[in-house]
Structures are given as structure tokens and as C-alpha cells.
Design a protein around this nucleic acid. Structure first.
Lengths: 180, 180, 180, 180
DNA sequence: AATGAATGAGTTTTCATTCAT
DNA sequence: GATGAATGAAAACTCATTCAT
């Protein structure tokens, strides 16, 4: 009944499967169970759908991370909680994971890109979670390294069936990033 | 004089700037200083250009990694050498780096993709470089983590001017991945 | 209002005038009073338009011939009826006649061609009309000869203004093919 | 050694197989054993090659027909001689026959077309061969009918393997066109 | 608000022709 | 004369977007 959400879901499936460029509005509309025209009642353009999908996903991650940061837990527990949430979501919605890996390509096309800014917030928050001092360069470095490592494991998980166990990966990462 | 190379260079510039999809053959040809038709004397299709670019770049990385693997150096020195080579090349040809980050997203579209296979060789070789036992899962995990971390730093370097110093990043990574 | 028919009519005019290959989709669209894209809402390809035109025309001829074959009329009357129908249609739509002569040249390019099969049904039915025994080689020969003769007259009619009178031609053909 | 003839032969093979439009100058050149550029030393354009092929073939037919016309033989013998010559050539060079049927499409594209004029001379000469009076309409009609019938048989021969025997066809035609 | 037929700008690719060697 | 790499105009086809119903 919520058309915007319906369209978002349809778009995720189609874009994950065919890639953003090959995902036509026709097919997205069919998958979402609406007419093409209806899409344009809820989104300004096809690009806007993708931006919205990424935005929703980033918000979900950043919200979780901000909660972790404010918690009094030890760092290793925070990190483990985040990783478990992340890989759980991958398992539940692999299409969305595929889409995020495929379509988050903002390598400096435009000068300012709100979606990119939102995306790049994640490594920063990861850094903060590992150690609270936001000015410390070393911390930002840790955040970026962790961010990249998680991404690479996610990609491997989606691509190769004989990937390592998720629990092994989580244990490894929790051990690697002690946040000191 | 070497038209194939000329086209490759032109394509790198244009694709890095506008993305593969928005990079038209017209513009690539103009940038390369040839006519559109000439592109098709040297490549089967626009896709083939991209594949070739990625192939060349992957080969350069894997060749270097194989050399490192066969060397008797300590692991930390091998890793440092690789990272210095990598970030040197980024500095020299940022367009190419941008392109690799933007366009090497093969999250499982096609079942078999030779370019993807070539690309995914890099984390495997990184793992081997860190510790020679190719059967050890832990080593593969290290390779993947390192691969992802390097990518994330590369992206940050390209996107944000106030990124950490490359030497700091290299020191951090050499310290993080001891290969034990 | 019926776009498919509109496009068929436009395509007939343009293809008859310039030949199939030189008839661009742009010009066909303009002649049909639609946009290029609209053509592809009703046909899979430019080829499909030509196939449809030929199909419609062949069906019209074969339907008429089957009616004649089932009639109790004497052969000469059946033949005359067919020829009058044929040359009437030529007069009414010379563009279509021109197109059929120009573009129905299937001299064995593809192994199987449904359009060609439909086209080559006409000489077979002509043979049947001349004498009902479908196994008699002689009859098939008559059908082919009649078919070719009619085509040659049609071509002459379209090309040379000082062609013989249609009635003379019909009389001649009715006299030549007595169907014995 | 005669390059023009070499090119003509190569073009016949390629055009017969792929059709004029799909026969590229590259492939024609390769088949002829020359370079593309060489074609343009002997022909003004790709079209000129086709015209030349048709011209040569028409000349061969018209020369033969003029000889027959000047002979004192009975009409049936002249006709039989022509038909035997024609079907012999089909058997010897089916590619050429295919090409002639496929590519002789002059349904009134241009006002004046020398190749078309040459082609349409054949039915006229056939008429003259059947009865010498060139002014008699009936004779022209016969020529056209015979021309079309021969064409239809040729097409059938090329398309369907279980065509009637050539001798049967010749006997039939000689019987059908007594020339009175 | 929902629909989906119509639109036409934009893209890849082909290929006849040229011309420097 | 022979060559074949370079050329770029031209063509089929796609698809995001619009708008009348």
C-alpha cells in the first residue's frame, strides 16, 4: 500500500540483478507492481530511486553505529554487534548487499554529492566506534581500514560460495581491530 | 603511433571522469585523438576497452605480487614494497585509480567473468604474500582484509583532499598485517 | 488510431519508394505520423515490419486462392477472378505491388524462412487452382509458370507506362493456362 | 591476373551468399584476393560492381538471344536452345543465378536506370524470338510471360531440392510457348 | 492518484570510401 | 598499381520521461 516502499523494494531486486543501467523503469515498475508513470509520482527520476535506496541503507548503518558509540560497552563488543548486524542483513537481503557494492561508485564524479557524503560517513563512524577521539588521525585510519575489510568480505561472500564462515570472519575482524 | 595504447589512455581519462556508461565512444575517440571507427579497428566493442584496461592494470598488480611472493624478503618488507608501488601509481595516474574503483564492481552479475576472475586474484595473491601456505583459511582472510583496506584508503585518497598522509597509511597497514 | 496499421501503411510507401535498406526508421516514422520509438512499441525490429507487410499481402492472396479452389466454377473463371483481383489491387496500391516485387527475393539466404514459405505457397495454390490433383508434377509446373508470368506482367506494368492493357494480359493468361 | 574479373568473381560469390547489402567490400576483397583499395582502382563504387555483374550477365543472355533471332531455326528449336543454355549456366554457377534473382530489384526506384533497361531487354528479345514482328503487342506479352515463367522456375530450382526435372520444365515451356 | 502509450534524444556500431605509403 | 589503416556519416534501436485519460 505504501507505494514508495513498494517501488524501493522492486527497484532493489531489479537493480541488484541487472545493474542500475540495465534496470529499466518498465521492469522496476512491473516488479514493484505499479505503472511506470506511478514511479514519477514518488521519485523525481530513476537516479532518485537509487539515491533513496542507498540513503535508506546508509541511515540504517549510521543509526546503528551512533547507538553503539553512545553505549558503554567495550569496543570489541560494539564491533562484534555491528558486524553481526551487518552480516545478518546481508544474509537476509543479499540483493540489497549486491546493489550497495555494485552501485556505490562515487569516485569523484561530481564535486558535491550528498549520497556520497552520507556513504563516507560510515568509515568515520566506524573509526569513532573503535576509539572515541574524533580528531585522532590514527582512529580515522582504523575506521577506513575496517570499512574496506568489511566490504571486501561482503563481496567475497556474495561471489564465492566456498567463502570462509561468517563467524570466522567476525572473530578475525574483532581480533584485528582492537581500537587502541 | 600505437593506436591501441592511445585509445586505452583516452578511454581511461574519459571513463574515470564520467563513468563507463556516460563515456561515449565519440568522446573517447576525441580524447584519444582518433576517429570513432578507429576504435573498432582495435577493440571489438566499448566493453572490450574497459576489459582491456582492467586486464592491463590487474596484470601489473599480479605480476608485482608474484615477484614479491618469490622473494626471500621478510613479509613486512614485501608488503611495504607493494603498498609503495600501489600508492605511487595512484599518484601518477589518479584517473586510472578512479576508474578501477568505479568500474571493478562485479557483484555477481554473470556466472563466469574472466575479468572478475583476474581481479579477484589480487586478494588471493595478497594472502599468499602475507604467508605462503595457500590452503590456510586464515591467510585468505588476511588477504581479503588487506585488499579491502587498501581499496578503502585509495578511495579516500581520491575523494577527500585532507586524507591522511600516504606514509602514515602504509606504516599503519604494515603494522596491522604482520602475516603471522 | 490503429498505430500498427498506420506504421504498416507508412512503411509500405517508404519502402516501395526507396527500397527496404534505404528506408530508415526515421523516415518510416515520419511517413506514418508517429515517433521512431512508437514503431518499436508495435514491431520488434525494422525487419519485422517488412515481414508483417509481406505476411498480410500473402494471406490476402492465399485466402482468395483457397476460396477459388473450393468453388465449383470452371477453371478459366477461377483464374480470371484471381487475375482481376490481383491487377485491381495493383492499381489501387501500386506502392505495395512495387514493394512485393522488390523485397520478396528470398533466393535461399537462410535455410528456413517462414515468410518465404508463406510466399512460395502462392505458386502451389495457383497450381491447385488450375487442376485439383496436388500430386501431379505437371500441375505444380503450371502453377510456377503462371506465378512467374503474373509477376513479370506486374513488373512491366509498374515500370513501363506503355504496357499492354491489363484486360489483354488477363485474356492472354486465361487462354494460356487452360489447366488440362 | 585480370583484377577486374577477379573482383567480379569474388563479388559474385560473396553477394550470392550474403546479399548485396551484407556483402562488405572487405569480404569481397578477401574473396577476390585483392586489397580493398584495389577494388576502387577498377570500380567507382560498390554499386558499380553489382551493376557490372548484372550487365555482363544480361549481355550474355541478349547476345545469345540475338543470335537465335537471326537464325533460321524453327521457333521451338530456338526456344529450346535458349532454355538449355540458361539452365546449364544455372547449374554451372548457381551463385550467379542466386545473385541475379536476389539483386535485380529495379521496381521504379530511379526514373532512368541503364542496368534496368538492359535487364528489361531480355523479355523483349524473348518475344522477338518467339515471333519476329516487334510491333505486335501479343508478341511482347508472350515474351514477358516466358521471361517470368523462366524466372520462377529458376527460383524454385535454387530453393527447393525436390524441384521438377529441368528437362521436364524445358519440355513444358517449349510446348507452352509455340510463338503463334 | 494511477496508468501506459507516445516520445525523440542519445548511443553503439558498421562500412563504403579515401589516401599516404 | 597495390595496399589497408583511418575515417565519420549514417542507421537501428533503447529507454527515461511525459501527459492525456
Amino acid at each position: 500500500m505504501d507505494k514508495r516502499e513498494q517501488i524501493r523494494q522492486g527497484a532493489i531486486e531489479v537493480i541488484a540483478q541487472k545493474g542500475f543501467h540495465s534496470a529499466t523503469t518498465q521492469v522496476i515498475a512491473r516488479e514493484a507492481g505499479v505503472a511506470v508513470g506511478t514511479i514519477y509520482n514518488y521519485f523525481d527520476s530513476k537516479d532518485a530511486i537509487l539515491n533513496y535506496i542507498i540513503e535508506v541503507e546508509c541511515k540504517s548503518r549510521t543509526r546503528f553505529l551512533r547507538q553503539m558509540i553512545e553505549t558503554e560497552w567495550p569496543v570489541s563488543r560494539k564491533l562484534r554487534a555491528f558486524l553481526e548486524m551487518h552480516f545478518d542483513q546481508i544474509r537476509e537481503n543479499p540483493a540489497l548487499a549486491r546493489l550497495m557494492l555494485q552501485e556505490c561508485r562515487f569516485a569523484g564524479r561530481e564535486e558535491t554529492d550528498p549520497v556520497r557524503d552520507r556513504y563516507m560517513t560510515i568509515p568515520r563512524l566506524l573509526g569513532q566506534m573503535l576509539a572515541d577521539d574524533p580528531d585522532e588521525v590514527a582512529i580515522q585510519i582504523q575506521g577506513t581500514a575496517l570499512f574496506g575489510a568489511v566490504q571486501a568480505f561482503t563481496l567475497q561472500l556474495l561471489l564465492t560460495p566456498e567463502s570462509p564462515e561468517v563467524t570466522t570472519v567476525i572473530d578475525y575482524l574483532v581480533d584485528l581491530f582492537p581500537g587502541q
